[in-house]
Structures are given as structure tokens and as C-alpha cells.
Computed example of a mutant assay.
Amino acid sequence: MLYRKMIWTLRIINSIKSGVCRASTWADFSKVSDDYDKFRIPVGRDFIAGMSQLYTGKRLQDLHILDIGCGTGQYAKEMLDLGVGRISLIDASPDMLNAAKYKLANEIEQGRVQCLETIKAPPLPFNSDCFDVILLTAVLPHLDCAGDKTYQNAVKMLEEANRVLTKNGTIVITTSFFSTFSRYWFCKVCPELCQRLCEYFPSASDFEIMFTRANLKCVQKFTVIGAGFMSYEGMVNSEGYVDQAWINSACCFDLATEEELTAIQDKVHTLYQNGKWKEWLAENDSTNELGIATFFVCQRKDNEGQAQ
């Protein structure tokens, strides 16, 4: 057991020494890894498990999943807890991956975690046709620069995912759109921030073009209703301000200006002091009621009888 622990530690250290690039073109995950899980909700885990079994034709215990941009391993942990047999994780942030390593310590010991590597992708350092399911959870919007509507890096990632996917394998992609971002309460305070965020997020039609370029076909599209990515429990601290840990966990505030952050804090503090914060939040945030996360389930176009 000690030998295995040493191997895992060495693999992570060597990856860090190799000089990994930033995990996102706009978010700095190195500064939020300690807070990332405090308010994050792994939305749609049952949906992912169900779609994975339906389209691969395999039981959970027989699946090998690749979690690209795994972050702190939230979704990987959920999948393993549901009974997935094996999972491999990669992320460009060594800080986030270290958090995943400790979260999955037991599963690593059991041999259910096949790979835990700090890797900047694309490309993917795996042989072709080796994964049953590939997860891209809020990953693609981080790969290209604002205004680049060709989404070249995102397409390359999808092409690589297609390459390492087994014949009847499934790719599950999670994203958000302008119409869903606008459901967040802070977008009511700073609509410019919402617009700035959406410059990085492909539209539904953009995704369809990207899928075609990567020789993929979308077989399911679904927005999870009744759950958002972020928990609001404990979001406002005892002084009446948005807790810094919540801001870090949300990540999107990396795109906010100092003036916007001040405006958000001032708005929340004033409402809190007047005893109206919870009422205002209920009236101005619909992420839980209407959903924020949209899932695309894709397969290879050449899968006859699968992608119908």
C-alpha cells in the first residue's frame, strides 16, 4: 500500500514539474481549490449514470469512465459511489487534482482509480478506443478565448474524446447558456458580468456545429430542473456580505471588475441589513426552480443503431 501511495505522489509531482499550463483561459483554479467544494453541487449524477448505461449497453460496474477536467473529483466520487467500476481523471490544475487525490484516497487504494494525472488537454495521452464514457463537465467553455466563435480548442477536445471512446461509448457534456446564466441573482445586479461570461460559452447552435466537426451526434439534450450548481446555504456571512469562499467556489467572479464585485457586496449587505435579503433572493434567482445545467449526450456518428 505504501508503494502505491508513493507512485501516486510521484506521478502528481512529476506532472507539476513538467510545467502544466493554466486550466482555463479565464478562471484561476489554483486560488480556489480549497473552497471549490464548499458550495458546489454535482448536478445530474443520476442522469449521467442512467444515460451511460442506456447508450453503452453496459452496467455501471463494467464501465471505465474518463473524467476530463475533473477538478476536485466531485463527479468522479459520485460516479464511484453509484457503482462505476473504474475511472480515470485528468485536469490541468495540480491544486484541483491534489484535492481529488485526497477525496478519492480509498478508491485509489482499491484500484478503482486507474489514472490521476495533471495534464493540459487536448491532446489526450491515451490510446484509441479505451473509454466507455467520457465526462466533460463545464470544461469546453474554458478552452477558448472570448469572441473566438470557431471554438478550435473545444473542437479538438471533442475530436480527441471521440478518438479514445469505445465504439458504443458515450460522451456527456455539461454547460450553461445565456438564458440560464441570467437566472442567477448576481446577474440581476451586474448584467454586464453575465454578458461577459457568455462570451466564453458556446450557444446551442454552436455546440451542434462543434459536434458535426468532431464527427459526433447528440442523442440527448436535457436541462436539470430543480437544482443549480451552487448551494446558497451559508452564502452570506454573519456580517451580511457574500462569503469569499462562495465567491471562490463560483469561479465566474474571476471575470468581474472590482466595481462589479463592490456593487454585488453592497447590494447584498444593504438587503441583509434591512432584513430583505432572503425575500429578494427568492424573487431574483430561479436557478434551482428552472435549472442552470444543460447536458448533451453524444456518440460517434458511425454508431449504427446507437445514435437515434
Rank of each mutant, 00 (worst) to 15 (best):
M1V: 10
L165C: 00
L158T: 08
L193D: 12
S30E: 14
F296C: 04
G83Q: 07
F222K: 13
A204E: 15
V236N: 10
E107V: 05
G44H: 01
A23L: 02
E304K: 15
N215T: 05
Q244I: 08
G226T: 05
A121I: 02
L197D: 11
E117Q: 13
D91A: 13
K267C: 11
K149M: 07
I173D: 06
N98A: 15
M6L: 11
A214K: 00
D302K: 04
I173T: 09
Q53E: 15
A263V: 06
R213N: 13
D206A: 05
F207Q: 06
A138H: 14
I171N: 02
Y3V: 09
T180H: 01
I171A: 03
Q299P: 05
S179Y: 09
I119D: 00
I90A: 06
K221T: 10
Y241N: 15
K17T: 12
I65F: 08
Q61I: 04
K267I: 07
A161T: 12
Q74V: 03
T223H: 03
E289G: 01
E304T: 14
V133D: 07
V32A: 05
M230H: 06
L216P: 01
S15T: 12
F253E: 04
T257H: 14
F295I: 08
M210S: 00
T72Q: 05
Q265F: 09
G19L: 12
N248I: 01
